[in-house]
Design a protein around this nucleic acid. Structure first.
Lengths: 256, 256
DNA sequence: ATACACCTTTACGTAACGTAAATGTCAATA
DNA sequence: TATTGACATTTACGTTACGTAAAGGTGTAT
């Protein structure tokens, strides 16, 4: 059984170019070259090619495949385990991407379909932007720090301070909310304090706070599963409770 | 707020090279060029860059990002949905890869016992190749669809239809083969029908069908453990039976 | 004046081939 | 026997999103 490039290509389902390339980079040399300069492959080459394609299928780079198939004593399973790790990381990355894309799609559609959610979309965007800005500013601050001296340190400190404050605020919203839940009264002092903290927290992300938007967002917490899931994670009913508190706080509750 | 390449790069966390590249491919041109030929970016460019980086983070290619950020009326959510599909497919692929790698690792560690199965993993390769081909064609068809109009829609439909047909064909090969095995006669009507179905099935994968190649493949089914394992999974001897049937079908049987 | 940090353009390198282009070989046919 | 058509060969540019020089101009501080 001797094969020319095309024969072997057909057999293996790859192009002749690929075979020449494999020859070129030395991972699969033909058994011999005939008088006309044609590449002639034999049984051994077929087997080797199958091995190569197998690893390729597993996503291993040709460079690594080369190591695997050329060195006979190479620890294949070790290499594969290593590779598996990489694949796993890749998958995690992909999952993250998909989640983010999903979110963004939801936001975009919400924007068009429901004016209510419009603000929420802005909110999400803000979150992302804020994150990026924070990151970017930190970088700049750091570099600026090195270059310009301490002139930028002020900015950096402010940004950091703000950031910390936001985190602290977010935490106290949750904390107060928990305590308020115990009372069970969304109009009570604790619940109203929660709503107020929530407003403060929100103000970091929204350029211009309005009661309407705040109330809308609260409603959203209940309407949107993602948020419901997030808040109710601690205890079922939290999202609804927070909404009620905010509706009362903003004076936009319409349950007579 | 005006930025040179480095300033903006620091702000955004990307290299100056990247900014020049973005300028080059026209997705982010500086607001102006100063007297020394320096690129000067303004507020608007910062915003646009943030958009670009956002989509980039979602794994969108610069080419597509260009469409998104340059055309204001571009349907972003549609593009993202499209992109999501791709990501999903990628993830499926990855899952498959990981599964296969896992299997292989397991096999390698219990090497001696299951050399048989080791090769079986390779069979899937063809399936994946086919998948990729199908996918590639769909893409091409789709892009063609957008550009050329509906002329290519036929192709796309055909591709989808073909795919279903191929699956059906593959199934009927197996089915008929089983029935033919009962007769025990590779020259019989059922066996020959199997061979014919097999030819049809094959024709989807091979651009040019030849009896020789068909016969060669049939022989391979017996010679190569992977295929033998696959076919004999149902019942031992199936691979050999199929080969005989095909050799007769192609008229290339040389057993006197 | 010189050093040094910044900017510019040009251009090669990456991975794994696809896709010509220009040319040689083999088998079959007019 | 000349030509055709299907094969083979090598060379080399194109792909993505930049990284990395190289070679040189600009701006500011010493």
């Amino acid at each position: 059984m001797e094969y020319t490039v095309q024969k072997l290509g057909l057999l293996a389902g790859i192009s002749t170019r690929t075979l020449r390339y494999y020859d070129e980079i030395g991972i699969l040399k033909p058994a011999r070259i005939n008088s006309s300069g044609y590449r002639i492959y034999g049984r051994a080459e077929v087997d080797k090619l199958q091995q190569i394609l197998f690893y390729k299928e597993l996503g291993v780079s040709l460079e690594n495949i080369k190591d695997i198939v050329t060195a006979p004593s190479f620890d294949g399973s070790k290499a594969l385990k290593n590779h598996r790790e990489k694949l796993f990381d890749k998958r995690k990355q992909l999952d993250l991407l998909i989640t983010n894309v999903d979110k963004t799609i939801a936001l975009m559609e919400g924007k068009i379909i429901m004016t209510d959610k419009e603000k929420f979309a802005g909110f999400k965007q803000k979150m992302i932007d804020v994150n990026e800005k924070k990151y970017g500013k930190e970088i700049r601050a750091k570099y600026g720090d090195e270059r310009v001296g301490k002139s930028n340190k002020v900015i950096k400190d402010m940004t950091e301070e703000q950031y910390l404050q936001v985190e602290k605020l977010g935490a106290s919203v949750i904390e107060t909310l928990k305590a308020a839940m115990v009372t069970g009264d969304p109009a009570g002092e604790l619940a109203q304090k929660t709503a107020d903290l929530h407003r403060q927290w929100l103000s970091f992300y929204w350029d211009c706070y309005t009661k309407e938007a705040h109330a809308g967002l609260a409603q959203m917490y209940v309407d949107d599963e993602r948020f419901t899931a997030y808040y109710d994670k601690q205890q079922p009913g939290v999202a609804a409770f927070l909404r009620d508190a905010i509706l009362i706080y903003t004076g936009m509750g319409d349950f007579s």
